[in-house]
């Protein structure tokens, strides 16, 4: 089974990569609206995580290139797996001075906890990128391929192999469930608090595999302690510069090629409060468009091996609708829905 969340933009991705960046961002030359006081940039996660890093990088680029006249202030609202941040935006109807960056908890938190919010309670602005996931194993164990590893897990018996991941009933566990469904292997899933910790637990052989983001495990990969088995996407990563001594991101096979067909990406997008005007949305789209054209952003995308898929407006809403349905189905099958 493939978690086909993105056949819609599979082709778009290649197109965007070829044609340069941000083909589809709304292109009103001069937005009519402009903020006249500081804008709060909500991060529905703690300091130091992937979403927080991206938000602070964006803030830094915007300050450095003077893209906004008013300050952009990052505020972490991580309570209840991010529900605190989403609810604060949901409850600020018509307030254009609040934007929020999302991760997969946009879908998983309301489904798993029953906290009443939905992406439709907010105004979608733009998808900035998609974060990838890779199946990692410890190099010492010598698994030749993802298939090889999965066979070993099956041979050991259900629950004997340990999969480490970030959080519970969130993206890492959903991918694990997807992988189990696709292959018939059965893991014990061990939830940790942060991605960096997960990668190090794998280096220390406390778990057998992880599905870390590229950025979370790249340092250990380059040092040779971890092996990248396959990427959870239907196309390979586009970055061909060598990252380790012998491999680039592009050399990692897709999980489909590796014979364990599973795929999943995580949304890195921006939302605003409900009831904001088209002018206000256009203003932020313009700012992000300029931000994504800076060398700092491009370097960050390549370092973290992000999928540079940018969507706005209706296309973004369609993507969200489909992604939500996919999450719901997967989580229902796994028994993760709130009762």
């Amino acid at each position: 089974m493939a978690i086909s969340m993105k056949s819609a933009f599979g082709k778009a991705l290649v197109g965007v990569m070829g044609a340069g960046l941000v083909a589809s961002v709304s292109t009103s030359a001069l937005a009519a609206w402009e903020p006249d006081k500081q804008v709060e940039f909500v991060v529905p996660a703690g300091t130091g995580g992937g979403a927080d890093q991206m938000a602070r990088l964006m803030q830094g680029i915007i300050v450095k290139h003077n893209l906004m006249k008013q300050p952009l202030v990052v505020v972490n609202k991580s309570g209840g797996a991010g529900a605190e941040g989403f609810l604060s935006v949901k409850n600020s109807k018509g307030d254009p001075y609040k934007i929020i960056i999302t991760l997969s908890n946009l879908f998983t938190t309301p489904l798993a906890t029953g906290v009443p919010f939905n992406w439709k309670d907010m105004t979608p602005v733009a998808m900035l990128a998609l974060d990838q996931f890779i199946l990692w194993t410890n190099t010492e164990k010598g698994y030749k391929s993802a298939k090889d590893y999965i066979e070993a897990a099956k041979a050991a018996g259900p629950g004997k192999f340990k999969m480490g991941g970030t959080g519970s009933k969130q993206e890492d566990q959903i991918i694990t469930v997807g992988l189990e469904k696709a292959t018939g292997a059965k893991f014990s899933y061990i939830p940790y608090k942060g991605g960096g910790e997960v990668a190090v637990q794998l280096v220390g052989n406390h778990v057998d595999s992880t599905v870390n983001n590229p950025a979370e495990a790249v340092a250990q990969w380059r040092a040779g302690s971890l092996t990248a088995q396959c990427v959870f996407d239907d196309v390979r990563l586009p970055y061909k510069t060598k990252v380790t001594a012998t491999q680039s991101w592009n050399d990692i096979p897709t999980c489909k090629e590796a014979g364990v067909p599973t795929d999943y990406q995580m949304l890195r997008g921006i939302f605003m409060a409900p009831g904001v005007t088209a002018d206000q949305i256009a203003y932020f789209n313009e700012v992000f468009k300029k931000m994504m054209a800076t060398p700092e952003w491009k370097e960050y995308m390549e370092k973290g091996a992000f999928s540079q898929t940018v969507l706005t407006g209706k296309e973004f809403a369609d993507w969200l609708t489909k992604a939500e349905a996919d999450h719901k189905q997967l989580m229902q099958e796994a028994g993760f829905l709130a009762k």
């Binding site: 703690g46 927080d52 890093q53 602070r56 960096g196 190090v200 280096v203 340092a219 380059r222 370092k303």
Partner: peptide
């Protein structure tokens, strides 16, 4: 552990780690 493994040993170290990544420095064994 932040410099050699890329895991922060404290909340502040976690923020510094984010800073390193943004400056293009990759904490870890290398």
């Amino acid at each position: 552990p932040m410099l050699t493994l890329g895991i922060p040993g404290s909340p502040t170290a976690a923020v510094l780690l984010g800073g390193l990544l943004i400056w293009g420095l990759q904490p870890g064994p290398l």
